[in-house]
Design a protein around this nucleic acid. Structure first.
Lengths: 144, 144
DNA sequence: TCGAGATGGTTGCTTTGGTAACTGTCGATT
DNA sequence: AATCGACAGTTACCAAAGCAACCATCTCGA
């Protein structure tokens, strides 16, 4: 009879680790700005690409359109982003960060990178192989 | 100015991958038995250890006690597990799988292992390094 | 032995996420 | 120009998850 040890089972381990990392990561932007993960993703995506539609944000950050819609509204209420109706296509809207949004972003990024660097440093020589394996798995489990 | 590419950012990648893997994994037990992830974890833990308390299940499977409580009730209603009041300590209850529960478990396990094996096989020589890196990160991000 | 704090487990409240239905707009075909 | 299907985004509804309050029981110390 085949046996399965939950603590060694890959999907479980990934899930556990991902939650733990996310939770720790919240401490990075938590103290100053209280962001949810979807809000952080929208912020990061907009900062990365400048101006884009909600649809494009969702695609790049693997988020369902309702999640994006809500995160966008939250950031808008915080005055971190503005909507502008697109001229060519009035169904969509061009989203971009305000000065405050960009300011907050720039404050968070170095800490986010330091957080990531801390993990990779702790992995030492295992870091590079991990990243390669991650890339392979991402290929096997593509976005939707 | 430091730049951050979300798609290369480790916490994001872990999160994305973990969701994708979990979602695919549901297809393993989905067709026959419609289980939630917490239910699956309780089932697996009980099968692994025989008889234990809800507290112990939560600890082993990294789940909040309310999650465990609800998953236990769901499995109980499905007649996959039974509660027995502990004699030494009447606050806690001894949980164990019924024959049906064990039967379902035994049907799922080979497929679960095959699913995992498929991933590891696709990783080829990268599998072992990945598992080592995972272990290191788990150490760095312990349960709660 | 009795009272205070700790503990196992459940329940209620609130937040969060997903699905589906809806609104408004576009593009294409007629 | 009118209509039909596709599409961007929002909203309403429902399932899932966390937090805190709660109940019952245990343990320990005065």
């Amino acid at each position: 009879m085949s046996k399965l040890a939950l603590e060694l089972f890959l999907p479980y381990r990934l899930n556990r680790l991902s939650s733990a990392v996310s939770q720790q990561f919240r401490a990075v932007y938590g103290p100053h700005h209280d962001l949810t993960v979807p809000e952080w993703r929208v912020l990061a995506t907009l900062a990365q690409f400048g101006t884009m539609t909600a649809k494009a944000i969702g695609k790049h950050s693997s988020m369902h359109k309702t999640k994006v819609s809500r995160a966008v509204r939250a950031l808008e209420e915080r005055r971190w982003l503005v909507r502008r109706e697109s001229e060519q296509d009035r169904r969509e809207e061009s989203l971009s960060l305000t000065a405050s949004g960009l300011h907050a972003y720039r404050e968070i990024v170095p800490r986010a990178l330091a957080f990531e660097a801390g993990i990779l440093a702790a992995l030492g020589p295992h870091a590079e192989p991990l990243l390669e394996a991650l890339a392979l798995m991402e290929e096997r489990f593509p976005v939707d």
